[in-house]
Design a protein around this nucleic acid. Structure first.
Length: 574
RNA sequence: CGGGCCGUAGCGCAGUCUGGUAGCGCGAUUGGUUUGGGACCAAUAGGCCGUGGGUUCAAAUCCCACCGGCCCGACCA
C-alpha cells in the first residue's frame, strides 16, 4: 500500500480529553476518532490493526475446532426475559433498549449467551452432535455508566465471544482447557505481557472463571500474585493468609464505655490506648438486594481489614450490595453511624462475620448506641454467634494462600475472560439435548470472551515510548514502512519502489511512504504511528544505502540495499 | 447517580471576573522559495461563542433551564 492513498491524519498536539497513553496516542495518531462518548470510528490503519488481531484470534480458535458465526446485534427482549437477565441489565443501566415499529421491545446485544444458546438449541438435538463450539467477532453495545480511556471502556466495542456446548462436566472441562490454551497462544502472538488470574464470575454467573490480564499501570483491575507458587487472582477474588492479630486472651466480662464522637477505628485506637485495630471488630451495615427482597444486614470485620463487596455479594447470593445510608443504619441499630455493633442488635438484622474473627476473644465493638463502645466482647456470649464467611479483601504483603510468600500487587487490563457456565443458561432457557438414555439434558456450557478492540489498546499501553506507539509486529498496521525522503529525487523514488516491491515479494507486510512531506514530518509520523521496521531512502540512495530503523529502541543503522530484505526479515524474526 | 470542571474556527487555547469591533498558535487553501527532524515568505478562507429563555440601550461575557463532554467516586464478563 502507498501511504499517499491511505487516509492518515496525525495531530501535532495531544487531544484534550485523553488521559492514558493508549487513548492519547491512538487519538493523536488519528487511529481512532470519537463520535460520541465511548463511541469511536476506526481509521484505516487502526482497522488493519483490529483485523490483524481478529485474524490471530480466528486462527487459534479454529485450530481448536471452534466455528465462526455471525449473530444478530438486535435481540428481542423475550430471550433476555427467558434467561432472567433482562431486569438486571436494564436496572444496571447498561442495556441499550429500543422498540421496533410494532412496539416490540428489543435491545442492542451487550453479549450473546441468549442468542447463541437459542441457536445451538435449535440445531443440536443429540449428544452425538457435541462437542460444539461457536464464536463470533462483532460489535457489542453497553451503555457504560462511565465510558473512558478511549477503546478501553467504550459503549460500542468489538468483542469475540465463544460458547462451548457439551454433554457433561468432564467434556466442558476439556473444552475449557482447549480454549485456555488458545487464549495463551493468542496473547503470546501479540507480544503481550499477560497473566492468567482467578476471577469472580460476576453477573454472568457459573462455576469457575479466569481472566487474562495485560499488566499495565493504567489497568482498571487490581491483581495479586505470587511468583513462588504461580498463584494469581483478581483482588475481587483473591484469598490470602493473614498475619495473626494480637491475642485477646481468656474471655473477660464485657465492659461498656462512653465514647462520644469516637467513630472510626483510628479514633478508637487513640481513645483506647493499647487496643490495636486487630483487636477491634467493626460492624458495617449493608443494604442488600435479592431478586425478590431487600434487607439490611450487619457484617463484622476485623478492625484492620477491609470488606470485599464482591465476596459479600456472592456469599449472600444477592444481586447487589451497598453500604447502608445513615438513616438505614439508625433504623437498624438505633445508633448513629460509627457505633454499630453486634451487642443488642435487633434479631431481625442478620449478622455475619469474616473468618478473621472466628475464635477471637475480648473484642472491641460498637455499642449499638450513639456514643458507646463495648470492650471484651465475646461472640456467642455477649451477642449472637454470627456465621463466619470469607469476606475479606486480600492485600499485597499478606501470605500467598499456597506458598505463604508475601503476595505482590499489579494493575491489569482485562483482555480475556473464560467461564465455566455449566447449565445456568441452558436450564433457564430450556436448552436441552437427548442423552444416551434418550432423556433431555441441559447443555453444559462454557463462554469465552476477548476484547478485540481493547486488546490493541492494551498493546499500546504496554508498548509505547515518549515518541509514540511501538506496535508489536504481529498486529502493527504494517510491519515495515519504506519512506522516500524527497519524492522529487528520481533515484530515491526508484530505489524506494524497488525496495518496497522486494519486501512484498519476500512476504513482508510493507507500505511505501510516497507522500510529499518534509523529511522531518515523515520521521515524526512514523515514530507516532509505530511501524516496527522503518526504512528511509535519502541522501545516500545513489550509493545504494538506506537507513534502517527499529522502532523499539530507536536503533538506526545504514544498510546496503542488497542486505536490506534479509535484515528486515531478521528483525521480524523470520 | 453523587462530587469537581469544561463547551469560543478542523485541533489546542485566550477573551468571561470588570457587558461595548471575536482573537492567538497549529492545521487548511493559493502562489513562490525549500527538502535530513513536524520548513520559510506572502496572501486567503474558515465562528449562530453548545441550545433555549431571561436581564440590559447592548451579552461569548451576567442569571435560569436544558443538551453535550471530561475528571474523581459509585458501577462494570
Amino acid at each position: 500500500m502507498r501511504l499517499s492513498q491511505i487516509l492518515i491524519s496525525t495531530l501535532r498536539e495531544d487531544p484534550a480529553d485523553a488521559e492514558i497513553p493508549s487513548h492519547r496516542l491512538l487519538a493523536r495518531a488519528g487511529l481512532i476518532v470519537k463520535i460520541a462518548a465511548g463511541v469511536y470510528t476506526y481509521a484505516p490503519l487502526m482497522w488493519r490493526v483490529v483485523q490483524k488481531f481478529a485474524q490471530i484470534v480466528r486462527e487459534e480458535l479454529n485450530r481448536e475446532g471452534a466455528n465462526e458465526v455471525m449473530l444478530p446485534i438486535i435481540q428481542p427482549k423475550e430471550l433476555w426475559v427467558a434467561s432472567g437477565r433482562w431486569d438486571r441489565y436494564v436496572n444496571d443501566g447498561i442495556m441499550f433498549t429500543l422498540k421496533d415499529r410494532k412496539g416490540t421491545e428489543m435491545c442492542l446485544g451487550p453479549t450473546h449467551e441468549e442468542v447463541m444458546t437459542t441457536y445451538v438449541n435449535a440445531q443440536v438435538n443429540s449428544y452425538k452432535q457435541m462437542p460444539v463450539n461457536c464464536y463470533q467477532i462483532q460489535d457489542k453495545f453497553r451503555d457504560e455508566i462511565r465510558p473512558r480511556f478511549g477503546l478501553m471502556r467504550g459503549r460500542e466495542f468489538i468483542m469475540m465471544d465463544a460458547y462451548s456446548f457439551d454433554a457433561d462436566v468432564a467434556a466442558l472441562d476439556a473444552a475449557y482447557q482447549k480454549m485456555r490454551n488458545a487464549y495463551c497462544r493468542i496473547f503470546e502472538r501479540c507480544g503481550l505481557d499477560y497473566t492468567v488470574v482467578q476471577a469472580d464470575s460476576g453477573a454472568i454467573g457459573g462455576a469457575g472463571s479466569e481472566e487474562f490480564m495485560v499488566i499495565a499501570d493504567s489497568g482498571e483491575d487490581s491483581i495479586l500474585y505470587c511468583q513462588q507458587s504461580g498463584y494469581a487472582a483478581n483482588v475481587e477474588k483473591a484469598a490470602s493468609k493473614l498475619p495473626d492479630a494480637p491475642n485477646g486472651g481468656e474471655p473477660k466480662k464485657m465492659e461498656r464505655h462512653a465514647t462520644p464522637d469516637v467513630k472510626t477505628v483510628a479514633q478508637l485506637q487513640a481513645f483506647f490506648p493499647g487496643w490495636e485495630a486487630g483487636r477491634m471488630a467493626k460492624t458495617l451495615l449493608y443494604h442488600v438486594t435479592w431478586k425478590a427482597k431487600v434487607k439490611v444486614i450487619a457484617v463484622m470485620m476485623r478492625g484492620d481489614l477491609e470488606i470485599n463487596e464482591v465476596k459479600l455479594t456472592n456469599t449472600l447470593d444477592a444481586l447487589s450490595v451497598r453500604l447502608a445510608t445513615d438513616d438505614e443504619i439508625k433504623a437498624a441499630t438505633g445508633a448513629e453511624t460509627g457505633f454499630a455493633g453486634p451487642v443488642g442488635l435487633r434479631d431481625d438484622v442478620p449478622l455475619i462475620a469474616d473468618e478473621s474473627l472466628r475464635d477471637r476473644t475480648n473484642l472491641l465493638c460498637g455499642g449499638n448506641e450513639s456514643g458507646f463502645h463495648c470492650l471484651n466482647v465475646n461472640l456467642g456470649v455477649d451477642c449472637r454467634m454470627p456465621s463466619f464467611k470469607d469476606l475479606r479483601t486480600a492485600r499485597a504483603g499478606e501470605g500467598c494462600p499456597i506458598s505463604g510468600h508475601p503476595l505482590q500487587q499489579a494493575r491489569g487490563i482485562e483482555v480475556g475472560h473464560i467461564f465455566k457456565l455449566g447449565i445456568k443458561y441452558s436450564k433457564a432457557m430450556s436448552a436441552t439435548f437427548m442423552d444416551q438414555q434418550g432423556k433431555p439434558q441441559p447443555f453444559v456450557m462454557g463462554c469465552y470472551g476477548i476484547g478485540v478492540s481493547r486488546t490493541p489498546a492494551a498493546a499500546v499501553e504496554q508498548h509505547h515510548d515518549e515518541k509514540g506507539i511501538v506496535w508489536p509486529a504481529s498486529i502493527a498496521p504494517f510491519e515495515c514502512v519504506v519512506a522516500m525522503l524527497d519524492p522529487k529525487r528520481d533515484e530515491q523514488v526508484v530505489l524506494a519502489e524497488q525496495i518496497y516491491q522486494k519486501l512484498k515479494a519476500a512476504g513482508v507486510d510493507a507500505c511505501l511512504d510516497d507522500r510529499p512531506l518534509s523529511p522531518g514530518a515523515k520521521f515524526k509520523d512514523h515514530e507516532l504511528l509505530g511501524f516496527p521496521v522503518q526504512i528511509f531512502v535519502g541522501r545516500r540512495a545513489a550509493e545504494g544505502f538506506t537507513e534502517f530503523l527499529l522502532r523499539r529502541g530507536m536503533q538506526k543503522s545504514e544498510v546496503a540495499v542488497a542486505d536490506l530484505t534479509a535484515q528486515v526479515l531478521a528483525a521480524l524474526g523470520r
